[in-house]
Nucleic acid binder design. Structure first.
Length: 414
RNA sequence: GCGGGAGUAGCUCAGUUGGUUAGAGCGCCAGAUUGUGGCUCUGGAGGUCGUGGGUUCGAUUCCCAUCUCUCGCCCCA
């Protein structure tokens, strides 16, 4: 039994769970298309370098969470931990910087070597949105509004809160980093062990610490908002105005930072209290430096990723499977007829199922279990008359229908 | 990677102060019912008590390790 365990942090998506995932993806795709986004798919793995360079060597994802391996040609390959880097690479690879803005929607599995919890797996699934080649605040507002519209369409918007912040431009960030470090150095001895480490790796992260002592120290820290360049401050203001105009409710969280190096300006998260420690369901931001960092032309961009498992958990019960029509042949001759009849009905667009064996009682039980809308019974009597008995499984009403009118009769109600 | 909790049938769980054949409900299969489901009745299958080792005459029970899930941390979607 234990040898049939799936690999840690992976799971099978059986029909009911898969319907939940599919509903998330289909809803997101439909809404994204109304904003003029088109779906793409990039490879599930890339050269390790793509992720290492884009996300930053010191980020947790790169330093300890990547599924990397050496292929038979000796290349270091990594299963993608996120979509953004791969899509940016694709933009450069395909010369799409000549056709900006490029608006991409994508969905698929991601891989991170982490300790699993509810809503956190080693193979998980994300929906992803990237708007590449637009540096205007309208782009930020629309990308965030699009995420909000998806959450609303999924019926989970009221369980989520939108937090936004700005990380400023490179200039603002560098200046603030120095100021913040000066301040924090004075408290070095009081900071948590994690935060002392972060002084070296990513001091901005300390702003987001959950340690109570850290929080107290951070409470008195200088704010990035007070050290933005005028241009960065104006941009953040413009984004807020546009969100307000779109009536997207948000709050500013000055301590919202990002673990990945490539973010600039707008950072945002849709968070929920309903998933324990895994509060972020959609998160993203602007990354104006990434494409240049990867070797392409300087190109502004903004995007986000949403966790499909987390969204499905918030959603609760997935939509029910569509109701089939159950065929119930009685007798050997009817069995043969049913085989062809099933195919004709399917070609007419109906969902048709049958249980292949058992007496009519068993087959009717099976039909009820499949939540069939109708049972179509065929026996010697019906065969002789070229008809079938259609039973409405909700009302129990039955009528005999000529075979050539069967599809129309079932289609009208199916 | 760090710290806590849990693991008994497909599912939800009971139980064994260490002692022969480990139980229930639901689900599954079959029969009552080879032309009619959701109700009912009867019967049946299904468990190396997560895995490995130790202690013991004897371990599902005690001890150790390990795996998986889970809660928190780190980090993130």
């Amino acid at each position: 039994m234990s040898s049939f365990q799936p690999v840690r942090g992976t799971r099978d998506l059986l029909p009911e769970a898969h319907r939940g995932h599919r509903h998330v993806v289909e809803t997101a795709r439909r809404v994204a298309e109304t904003y003029g986004f088109h779906e793409v798919a990039t490879p599930i793995f890339e050269f390790t370098d793509i992720f290492a360079r884009s996300m930053g060597e010191t980020s947790d994802v790169v330093s300890k969470e990547m599924y990397s391996f050496t292929d038979k040609a000796g290349e270091s390959i990594t299963l993608r931990p996120e979509y953004t880097a791969g899509i940016c690479r694709a933009v450069i690879s395909n010369g799409l910087t000549q056709a900006l803005p490029f608006k991409a929607f994508a969905a698929g599995p991601m891989f991170r070597y982490e300790r699993p919890q509810k809503g956190r797996q080693r193979q998980f699934h994300q929906i992803d949105l990237e708007l590449i080649g637009a540096g205007e605040p309208e782009a930020d507002a629309e990308v965030i509004a699009l995420a909000f519209d998806i959450l609303a369409a999924l019926g989970v918007a009221e369980k989520c809160r939108l937090e936004i912040n700005t990380l400023g431009d490179a200039e603002s960030r560098a200046a603030y980093r120095t100021i913040l470090l000066d301040y924090l150095q004075a408290f070095r001895g009081d900071l948590s062990e994690d935060s002392r480490r972060r002084l070296e790796t990513n001091p901005l992260r300390i702003l987001d610490s959950k340690d109570p002592v850290d929080r107290e120290i951070v409470g008195g820290a200088p704010l990035l908002a007070d050290h933005l360049t005028p241009a960065a401050a104006d941009f953040f203001q413009a984004v807020q105005e546009r969100l307000a105009r779109l009536r997207i409710p948000f709050e500013i969280n000055a301590h919202l930072v990002r673990g990945l190096d490539y973010y600039t300006h707008t950072a945002f998260e849709f968070v929920t209290e309903a998933l324990g420690a895994q509060g972020a369901v959609v998160a993203g931001g602007r990354y104006d430096g990434l494409i240049a960092e990867l070797g392409g032309p300087q190109t502004p961009a903004i995007g986000w990723a949403g966790g499909i498992e987390r969204l499905a958990l918030l959603m609760g019960d997935p939509p029910p499977a569509p109701r089939p029509i159950a065929l119930v042949p009685v007798g050997a001759a009817a069995e043969t007829t049913a085989l062809g009849l099933a195919r004709r009905l399917r070609q007419a667009g109906l969902i048709v199922d049958w249980s292949y064996r058992g007496n009519p009682g068993k087959r009717m039980k099976r039909a009820a279990k499949l939540n069939a809308a109708y049972a179509v019974l065929i026996g010697d009597d019906e065969l002789a008359r070229g008809s079938a008995t259609v039973r409405d499984l909700d009302s129990g009403a039955q009528e005999e229908v000529p075979l050539d009118r069967l599809a129309a009769r079932l289609g009208a109600h199916g």
